[in-house]
Amino acid sequence: MVAGDPGTDTGARKASGGPGPRQAWSGLPWPVRSAVLWSACLVVIVAGLYLLGKIAVLLAPLAIALAATLFLTALLDPVLLLLRRLRLPAALAALLTVLLLLGILVGVGALVWNLTASQFDQLSQQLTQGLERSRDFVTSSLPVTDAQLDDLVDQARQAAGSGSVDPIAGARTATEVLGSALLALVLLFFLLKDGRSMWHWVLSRMTGPNRQVVAESGRAGWQTLGAYSRGTMLIAAIDAIGIGVALVVLRVPLALPLALITFLGGFVPIIGATVAGAVAVLVALAANGPTTALLTLAAVVAVQQIEGNLLEPLVMKRQVRLHPAVILVAVTAGTLIAGIAGAFVSVPITAVLWRVIDTIQSHRTTPAGPTPAPAG
């Protein structure tokens, strides 16, 4: 036989002691092959997401500014469209939209500060008293000693990274926050002014069926982000008003600061509302005793149940809503990767990615036909 003859290769493989890799792979049962392929794909996806998360952490001020800009742009897009319908130039409409946002933020911030600045110290004292009462209840009704509870608290503080305050690190953090806010405002103006023309430029560089897929998936993702931002703000405001009214009726002190905490917590689904409700119950326990605390807990649960079962299906579109398990996983992953900022942006990112992937998948499963021109 000559070199390269199949018989020679087969004989060489037999002499080497076993079949080749292709024959060994074909000999595996199909569940094993499927499991190997899916596991490899999952490893690649997780590694890519982990790498992106690490890059976002390294570029934290820029990542936070971009996330805030996209969120605010989707939130304010209807205002911009209304001004454009009034025949205002794009630059003037974008500038007025940004000024409107600044006016609302400054006005609400000044009002809340004037009404609650003197109460934040009292809020801290009430929380401390509530924790002390909770501690007494735990040690008196459960087989837990004071020393064991102190050890648990110390471990929680160490896990949270609490320690001595570093003034240099604090100044650096304040500078990064201020720089991110200014960058977000500048980017917000340019996205409101030129965002659509930028998107059209991206689409003009594509040809064939890919252009239609990118156009529809981008449109679906943008609509999802806009619906999520506006729906989340509306639901958070309704939660804050409902719980604030309940606190006023029950004569719980610091109702306005607690309503503000509830509003901010509404932007972190499930976990934020739970933490805000726990703070309200602790303050009620410290100020008015266990009866008022139980009534406050009942009011918080009632408002959250009405919000979750009635308001959210009406306010949020069906394609925006995610399963609670997915939300918990997304919030936890975002918190582990980027802290509080990651908790805020994890759910909208997950919702947008899901809509984009779903749109692309629907195109792949739809029979091919004539490709229409993408809408503007």
Rank of each mutant, 00 (worst) to 15 (best):
L203F: 03
G226A: 12
V213R: 11
A240S: 09
I241F: 06
A255E: 10
I238R: 08
S217R: 05
S204C: 03
L225Y: 03
V268P: 00
A236W: 01
Q212R: 11
P209R: 14
M206L: 15
T262P: 06
G208N: 14
D239R: 11
A215P: 02
M206V: 08
I243R: 02
L203D: 06
A227M: 04
L258W: 01
L264C: 14
A259L: 02
P209I: 13
A220Y: 03
V245D: 02
I241Y: 05
P209E: 15
L234H: 08
T207W: 09
G226M: 06
M233N: 07
M233W: 11
P269W: 01
P269E: 02
D239K: 10
R205K: 14
P257F: 11
E216H: 13
A255Y: 12
G265S: 06
M198Q: 15
R251Q: 12
L250H: 00
E216T: 11
G244F: 02
L258K: 07
G244W: 02
P253F: 06
P253W: 05
Q212F: 07
G244C: 10
N210Q: 12
R230N: 08
G231K: 01
R230Y: 00
M233I: 13
T207Q: 10
M206F: 13
Y228M: 03
A236K: 01
V245G: 05
T207N: 08
L234K: 09
V202W: 13
G218C: 07
L203S: 06
V248M: 15
G231N: 00
T232H: 05
V249Q: 05
A220T: 02
V202A: 14
I270P: 02
A240V: 03
R230S: 11
M206C: 12
A215N: 04
G208T: 13
G226H: 08
T224D: 02
I261T: 06
R219W: 11
V202L: 14
S229I: 10
V268A: 00
L250W: 01
G266Q: 00
L203G: 03
G221P: 03
S204N: 08
A227W: 04
A227G: 10
I243E: 05
L225V: 09
L258P: 08
P253D: 12
M198N: 14
V248T: 14
L256G: 03
L234Y: 09
G226F: 03
L247E: 08
M198F: 15
V248E: 13
L260G: 11
G242P: 01
A237Y: 03
M233F: 13
E216Q: 15
I238C: 15
D239Y: 05
R219A: 14
Q223H: 07
R211E: 15
I270Q: 01
L258H: 04
F263K: 07
A259N: 01
I241M: 11
L260F: 12
P253L: 08
M198S: 15
V213A: 07
V268Q: 00
G231I: 02
G231D: 00
L203H: 04
R219C: 10
A259F: 03
T262F: 05
I241D: 03
G266S: 01
L254Y: 01
I241S: 09
G208P: 14
A220P: 06
E216K: 13
A240C: 06
Q223D: 11
V248H: 13
I235N: 03
I270L: 01
L225W: 07
G244Q: 09
F263R: 07
L254D: 02
L258Q: 11
T232F: 00
T232D: 08
S229N: 13
